[in-house]
Computed example of a mutant assay.
Amino acid sequence: MTQSLAKNIKPIHEHGANVLYQHGTLALLVPGLLEGTTTIGELLKHGDTGIGTGEGLDGELIILDGVAYKVGQSGVAERVPDDFTMPFANSHRAAFQYQCEREDIGLEELNKKIVEANGRANTFFSVVVRGTFSFIKTRAVIKQQAPYPTLVEVADRQAVFLRHDVKGTMLGYFSPVMFHGAAVAGFHEHFLSDDHTFGGHVLDAVLQRGKIYSQVFDTLVQHLPVDDPGYRNHDFSQDPIAEAISSAEGDIRPHNE
Rank of each mutant, 00 (worst) to 15 (best):
T49G: 02
V19K: 15
E55F: 10
G16T: 00
L29D: 09
A27T: 00
E55V: 10
G56N: 07
L57T: 10
L43P: 05
L29P: 04
E35A: 12
E42G: 02
E42R: 10
H23G: 08
L34D: 02
T53D: 08
V30K: 01
A17M: 10
G56E: 07
Y21N: 11
P31W: 12
L44I: 06
L28T: 09
G36P: 02
T49L: 09
T38Q: 00
T38P: 00
T25I: 05
G54M: 14
A27D: 10
G52F: 13
L44T: 07
I51H: 07
L34C: 04
L57R: 15
H23M: 08
D48M: 03
E35Y: 05
L20H: 12
A17T: 12
Y21Q: 04
L29K: 08
E42D: 12
G41H: 03
G56V: 01
G52Q: 14
T53C: 14
G54K: 11
D48P: 05
G24D: 08
G47V: 04
E55W: 08
T53P: 02
N18P: 03
A17H: 09
H46C: 05
G47S: 07
L29Y: 03
T53F: 09
I40G: 01
E55G: 08
T53E: 14
L44Q: 09
H15Y: 15
G16Y: 00
G36M: 04
L43C: 07
L57G: 08
L33H: 02
L28Q: 15
G50R: 07
G41Q: 04
N18S: 08
L20M: 13
L20Q: 08
G24R: 07
H46V: 05
K45Q: 14
I51P: 02
Y21S: 14
G32I: 03
T53K: 06
L33C: 02
L44P: 01
V19T: 15
A17K: 14
E35L: 04
L34P: 01
H23C: 06
G47P: 03
A17S: 14
L43V: 14
T37F: 01
T39M: 00
L28H: 15
G47H: 01
I40H: 00
L34S: 03
G24I: 06
T49M: 11
G50F: 12
L26D: 14
L28N: 08
G47Y: 02
L44Y: 06
T38V: 04
G54H: 13
H23K: 06
P31I: 13
G56R: 09
I40M: 09
G54F: 14
A27W: 02
V30C: 12
H46A: 08
